[in-house]
Measured scan of single mutants.
Amino acid sequence: TRVETATETAWISLVTALHLVLGLSAVLGLLLLRWQFPAHYRRLRHALW
């Protein structure tokens, strides 16, 4: 049971790290898009909202 718990903890930390990385890359990508294509971003936002 001790090994299982350790594996579970490792998986949880791995998944958390993955989610953090994905979230950060998504935010960075959005910022980059907004910085590179302001007109396109505004049009996209206008279409979405």
Rank of each mutant, 00 (worst) to 15 (best):
T1L: 13
T1F: 11
T1D: 05
T1C: 07
T1S: 10
T1A: 13
T1E: 07
T1R: 06
R2L: 13
R2A: 12
R2I: 09
R2Y: 12
V3D: 00
V3E: 01
V3K: 00
V3R: 01
V3A: 02
E4D: 06
E4Y: 06
T5V: 03
T5L: 06
T5P: 00
A6L: 06
A6F: 05
A6Q: 09
A6N: 11
T7W: 13
T7K: 09
T7N: 07
E8S: 11
E8Y: 05
E8T: 13
T9K: 10
T9R: 12
T9M: 11
A10D: 08
A10Y: 13
A10G: 11
A10T: 12
W11E: 04
W11R: 06
W11M: 10
W11F: 11
W11I: 10
I12D: 02
I12K: 12
I12T: 12
I12P: 08
S13E: 06
L14S: 06
L14Q: 04
L14G: 06
L14Y: 10
V15P: 01
V15R: 04
T16N: 04
T16H: 04
T16V: 15
T16E: 04
A17I: 09
L18D: 01
L18I: 12
H19G: 15
H19A: 15
H19E: 09
L20K: 01
L20I: 13
L20A: 13
L20F: 09
L20Q: 04
V21W: 03
V21K: 01
V21S: 15
V21G: 10
L22H: 00
L22R: 00
G23S: 08
G23N: 06
L24E: 01
S25P: 05
S25H: 08
S25V: 14
S25K: 01
A26G: 12
A26I: 12
A26W: 08
A26Y: 04
A26P: 03
V27E: 01
V27K: 02
V27F: 12
L28Q: 00
L28Y: 04
G29H: 00
G29A: 12
G29V: 14
L30C: 14
L30H: 05
L30M: 12
L30R: 01
L31E: 02
L31R: 02
L31K: 04
L32M: 15
L33G: 02
R34H: 02
R34P: 00
R34E: 01
W35S: 12
W35P: 15
W35D: 01
W35H: 14
Q36I: 10
Q36D: 00
F37K: 02
F37A: 07
F37E: 02
F37D: 05
F37T: 03
F37N: 01
P38F: 04
A39S: 13
A39M: 08
H40P: 07
H40L: 08
H40M: 14
Y41L: 13
Y41S: 07
R42V: 07
R42Y: 11
R43C: 08
R43V: 06
R43H: 07
R43D: 05
R43Q: 11
L44W: 07
L44T: 03
L44I: 14
L44S: 03
R45V: 09
R45G: 03
R45K: 15
R45C: 07
H46T: 08
H46Y: 04
A47T: 08
A47V: 09
L48A: 05
L48S: 06
L48E: 01
W49E: 00
W49P: 03
